[in-house]
Amino acid sequence: MTNKRDISLGTVQETLLIPLYGRAVESRKPEPALHDPRAEEIVASIDYDFTRFDGLPSLVGSVLRTALFDVWVSDFLAEHPAGTVVEIGTGLNTRYERVGSSRAPWFDLDLPDVIDLRRAFFTDTPLRTMISASVTDRAWTDAVASGVGGPYFFAAEAVLPFLERAQVRHVVDLIAERFPGALLALDTAGPGITDTQDQHDALSKVEARMRWTCADPAEITDWCPGTRILASHTLTTLPASLHDRLPAAYQGMLSGLAAQRLPQLEEYRLNLLRLP
């Protein structure tokens, strides 16, 4: 019998297992929206009851979110092959394996317990570096700034909604101050989502809860004047560059959901910002 790795993660950090499992499940499908054999390997090696997430619609949502972030990072690297990418709250993400560049510096940032787990599956390289720190701690920006330089792309996927509003504002201000003109990709959740988390299909299976309610991502432009929203999508209004290459079954599903205009889908947005 194969020995599996025991894990010990903080309350919020445990949520990283949801998108990890989502990618692994998706990758095994005959027509996947996203192919991620590395996620399959990691899930198979971890001692955790992933079956609690089986069949949940949120798994598909997490895959579509990841796929859009992949598109944004790919577009950035196509324009800036030696640009710097920073994964905020990287968890056990494998975006580098999917879209990383042989020229672009890449930083994987997360809390110490997550980085300890991540080091069981990934190693630092001359271009790829793990940083053990809280995103609210200014010190991590020194490590990123000491690299070869920008332009910079910051991907904060399924991270910032779990912080308090003041903490999110601090993070945005910190990035804007240290890395002027950087791109920041993040997700936001409105009150229809944050107020009903106890009934959420996936979050109801864990203890973590989102703290930051954002009804309109334009709120961020008020915090940081000069910030521009380059894109803001719901899962049912994905850009054609992604939607048109999804499996036909997914395209049909998203069309049906769009017609229903469900608050849980309308209030969850995937945003790409240009910081001042």
Rank of each mutant, 00 (worst) to 15 (best):
N3I: 15
K4E: 13
R5S: 10
R5D: 00
I7L: 04
I7M: 01
G10W: 00
V12Q: 07
E14K: 15
T15L: 11
L16T: 02
I18A: 11
Y21M: 06
G22I: 01
R23S: 08
V25S: 12
V25Q: 14
S27M: 13
R38G: 07
I42S: 04
S45C: 04
S45V: 03
D47N: 15
G55T: 01
S62D: 11
S62T: 07
L64R: 01
R65T: 13
R65G: 10
D70H: 11
D75F: 04
D75E: 12
D75A: 06
L77R: 04
H80N: 12
H80P: 01
H80M: 03
E87N: 07
G89K: 07
R103K: 13
P105S: 14
P105K: 13
P105D: 13
F107S: 11
D113L: 07
D113H: 06
D113C: 13
I115D: 03
F121W: 07
P126K: 13
L127A: 15
M130N: 11
M130E: 10
A133F: 10
V135I: 08
R138E: 05
T141C: 15
V148Y: 00
G149P: 11
P151Y: 12
F153R: 02
F154T: 02
F154K: 02
V159A: 10
E164I: 03
E164S: 09
R165P: 03
Q167L: 11
V168G: 12
H170W: 05
I175M: 04
P180S: 08
P180W: 01
L183D: 01
D187G: 05
G190K: 07
D195Q: 04
Q197P: 06
Q197H: 01
D198K: 15
Q199T: 13
Q199G: 06
D201K: 04
L203K: 02
E207V: 11
E207C: 07
T213S: 06
T213R: 14
T213P: 03
A218D: 12
A218W: 08
I220T: 15
T221S: 12
D222V: 05
W223R: 14
C224N: 11
G226W: 14
R228L: 04
A231S: 07
A231E: 11
T234V: 12
L238P: 04
A240K: 10
A240G: 10
R245K: 14
Q251I: 04
M253G: 08
S255Y: 09
L257R: 11
Q260T: 03
L262C: 08
L272G: 04
R274W: 12
R274P: 09
